[in-house]
């Protein structure tokens, strides 16, 4: 996936650059199509708030990492590039972690180890390897933001479904009115548990692929 983009005289938001930003959110989504970065993340989607924080952290880390690697792309020796990439990502994640600990301590407790696991999130490594190593800083930045946003969109969708059906709230605000509970509606406790995260993602993939027939896996 080494699309080489030469945009010396292009405006900052040319058609091609906009595509870099918008493609990963829909058609080329990192989670449902490229199957990257599912790793650590489903466990934080019990509630919307930690998922939002995590999504923003990933956007920040990924945008910056892509820019840094793309600026360094001519100086990094080919053979040790993985270590260099890991070091850059790890340093950025340490900054994010310290900021979260300083300003949002309870969310940081809730996310526990999953902030650290941004390091091994395969989307970041994948985009560094596949895009930032061969492209200029600005397209790489857009690509990073776009992919992280595509990832964040799935994360938030899963979290919204799980919090709404599991606890009847969104962002800790009650959505399902009291009258429903009096009639006999009950929160579905299964949505709080890990298996439903997987099944929700499965259903999202199903919806995505049935709307866009060319994405169907032939095998």
């Amino acid at each position: 996936m080494s699309e080489n983009i030469n945009n010396n005289k292009e405006p900052l938001f040319s058609y091609k650059n906009k595509k870099l930003l918008s493609n990963p959110i829909g058609k080329d989504n990192p989670i449902t199509i490229q199957v990257l970065g599912i790793c650590s993340i489903l466990a934080v989607t019990v509630q919307l708030k930690p998922s939002l924080v995590l999504a923003i952290s990933v956007v920040a880390v990924m945008g910056l990492a892509n820019v840094i690697i793309s600026l360094l792309r001519n100086t990094i020796p080919q053979r040790i590039r993985i270590i260099v990439q890991l070091t850059v990502i790890a340093s950025l994640v340490i900054i994010v972690d310290q900021v979260l600990k300083a300003y949002m301590y309870d969310v940081s407790r809730q996310l526990s180890i999953f902030v650290g696991l941004i390091i091994t999130n395969c989307i970041i490594m994948g985009r560094l390897e596949g895009f930032a190593l061969y492209n200029k800083a600005w397209p790489s930045f857009l690509d990073g933001i776009g992919n992280a946003a595509g990832y964040g969109a799935i994360l938030l969708a899963v979290a919204a479904v799980r919090e709404l059906f599991g606890a009847g709230t969104l962002m800790n605000v009650q959505i399902i009115p009291d009258i429903f509970y009096r009639i006999g509606y009950e929160n579905n406790g299964l949505f709080i548990l890990p298996p439903m995260a997987l099944i929700t993602v499965g259903v999202i993939i199903w919806i995505h692929r049935s709307r866009d027939k060319e994405l169907i896996d032939a095998s």
């Binding site: 993602v201 499965g202 692929r209 095998s219």
Partner: peptide
């Protein structure tokens, strides 16, 4: 398997069911 679920989709749902079993 339903065509849109083939591959990744069904793998996720199976994993979910396995996870329920392990619970």
């Amino acid at each position: 398997v339903l065509p849109p679920l083939r591959g990744l989709g069904i793998a996720f749902i199976i994993t979910g069911l396995m996870s329920i079993a392990f619970m």
